[in-house]
Design a protein around this nucleic acid. Structure first.
Length: 512
RNA sequence: GUCCCCGUCGUCUAGUGGUUAGGACACCGCCCUUUCACGGCGGCAACACGGGUUCGAUCCCCGUCGGGGAUGCCA
């Protein structure tokens, strides 16, 4: 094989250190899970920070479980996160094909090479045979420690007989009985395994497909992957794979095993904990930039007192494999939401409008041209003004509709508790009526008014009533917005418009 | 059972053979204020345990405990 390929990779930065080639190799058997997303992200960050190459390879060697829908979902999830790849099934590249199901001949050739060297052998045990022997061992009070080597030393006659009988067979790797296999892991440092504990696992299935263990090694080598960064659930697979590299006479890549992501209770992260796939987070209003940012903080840290809220570019600038930790992290939905809020707040006004527009469309909300509103003549412009009054209160896509619904519809969300407390009293009714009358007298109904005009009337009215402005403002806020918390009340009045403001105050007063 | 990994506030983490063990989320209090949020200020809270090594261990070694992973013709 030509190992100079790595040095031909684009964007090399040093003669001494060829640009790395890394890969994310998901199996298309479900959505892009946060664990997978984190693995993909760290590979991507490493590639981008080192001016290397990021390869996407699809490990679809499980015919039963691989689906086209999953393939599409994974690519979609990665695109949503903003993880782009230099080589992959959809974009091609010099090391394709990138779909393992299209590389069967390649695997077959290498299997033959191993078989010729006596390192792979045929195993005629059926799933039932294996299960029966396992049950037997367990029934005798023993522990099944993996394949028992049943077909390891079949004679030529035995093999011929089995083949003549048409018995299906798989291929297993013959692992050494003694010695040890070790490597220096980028994240976990030196790891070593006694070869004795390694079992002869299947490398080629009876259905003619290679197993993950085998295909992964062949592809990583042929695709000239320099660093294999994956979850630490693969640690125990590594010595076995190292033996395959060795059997084929190949130099293995560097390995880096990242700790897994756990649920808030430190158990395996599952649906029980809430969202686990990136598309679910998308539905929950999480911005891709925030998801990427949060995920980057799981197992990695910019260090010291550095800011944690970062853009992808900033993360790339600071990323280093050396700073990836080795202890598993619990997923914290609160912190994700906080980071999401920070990313929303950092958006410029135009971006916020674009972000919120689909939410209005979903509900059929738009600016009613019949309503007189000061300084906004289109839905977009109006939404811009609305979001402007919200300021930093806009920090979640999930709560936004309730926060702004009253600007677009008379059928808005009402917090019953707030209504009872602030509007449902006799005193509040009196104030609301007085305020409505004051507004009607003080301002021209056929005109749109800016916030200060409303403020002047409200404060004067409070004076006339002999109470502090707050006593009018609180009931008015609930009457206008349905809630006890909102943007500045005078801004609300301006954008709700005089006519509707008066209507809502009267309606609320009437319900007292 | 066996093998492997991990163990700093509740959570994410920084960090060092000698530090008042730092930051962030969450939580609590105060200020600001028409509410909430933001912001500002302050608070609560950690080196799992037991042995060593050492003048001195959170840091190095061993053990224990706890958590996670693997133990598939899944990946």
């Amino acid at each position: 094989m030509d190992d100079r390929g790595a040095r031909r990779a684009p964007g090399r930065i040093s003669l001494m250190c060829p640009a790395p080639r890394v890969r994310f190799a998901p199996s298309p058997t479900g959505h892009l899970h946060v664990g997978g997303a984190r693995t993909a992200l760290f590979n991507w960050l490493y590639a981008r920070s080192q001016k290397g190459v990021f390869v996407l390879r699809i490990e679809d060697t499980d015919q039963e479980r691989s689906t086209a829908a999953s393939y599409a979902a994974i690519l979609e999830g990665m695109r949503w996160l903003g993880l782009d790849w230099n080589e992959g099934p959809d974009v091609g590249g010099d090391h394709g094909p990138y779909l393992q199901s299209q590389r069967l001949d390649i695997y077959r050739q290498h299997l033959e090479q191993l078989a010729a060297a006596g390192l792979a052998y045929k195993c005629f045990c059926s799933a039932e045979d294996l299960q029966a022997r396992e049950d037997e061992v367990k029934a005798a009070g023993g522990v099944w420690e993996g394949y028992d080597g049943h077909c390891r030393n079949l004679t030529a006659d035995q093999i011929a007989t089995a083949e003549a009988a048409g018995k299906p067979y798989a291929w297993r790797l013959r692992t050494p009985d003694e010695g040890m296999t070790f490597w220096y892991d980028i994240i976990l440092d030196k790891l070593e395994f006694q070869n004795e504990v390694l079992v002869d696992r299947v490398i080629f299935k009876a259905d003619g497909f290679p197993t993950y263990q085998f295909a992964c090694v062949i592809d990583d080598h042929l695709m000239e992957i320099s660093h294999v960064l994956r979850g630490d659930d693969h640690v125990s697979n590594t010595p076995f794979q190292l033996l395959i590299y060795q059997g084929l006479g190949w130099k293995p890549p560097k390995f880096g095993h990242m700790p897994m992501i756990l649920g808030p209770d430190r158990k395996r992260l599952s649906k029980r904990h809430g969202a686990t796939s990136v598309q679910e987070f998308q539905k929950q209003g999480i911005l891709p930039a925030a998801m990427l940012n949060y995920l980057s903080l799981l197992g990695w840290s910019p260090g010291g007192n550095a800011k944690e809220v970062m853009t992808a570019r900033e993360i790339i600038g600071k990323f280093s494999l050396k700073k990836v930790g080795s202890s598993p992290a619990a997923f914290d939905y609160d912190k994700l939401n906080h980071i999401n809020g920070e990313h929303i707040k950092a958006l410029d006004p135009g971006q916020k409008v674009q972000l919120a527009l689909p939410l209005l469309a979903e509900r059929g909300w738009a600016l009613d041209p019949g309503w007189l509103v000061h300084g906004a003549d289109s839905t977009e412009a109006y939404l811009g003004r609305v979001l402007g009054t919200l300021g930093n209160r806009f920090s979640s896509l999930l709560t936004l509709p309730d926060q702004i619904g009253f600007f677009f519809s008379e059928d808005f969300y009402v917090d019953q508790e707030a209504w009872t407390e602030h509007v449902g009293t006799e005193e509040a009714g009196t104030f609301l009526k007085a305020l409505a009358a004051a507004l009607e007298e003080g301002l021209a109904l056929d005109q749109a008014h800016p916030a200060p005009a409303f403020e002047e009337v409200v404060r004067r009215c409070a004076e006339q009533q002999g109470v502090k402005a707050g006593q009018l403002i609180h009931p008015a806020r609930v009457a206008l917005t349905g809630q006890s918390r909102s943007a500045g009340i005078f801004d609300v009045m301006e954008l709700v418009g005089l006519r509707r403001t008066i209507e809502r105050l009267r309606k609320a007063a009437g319900s007292a």
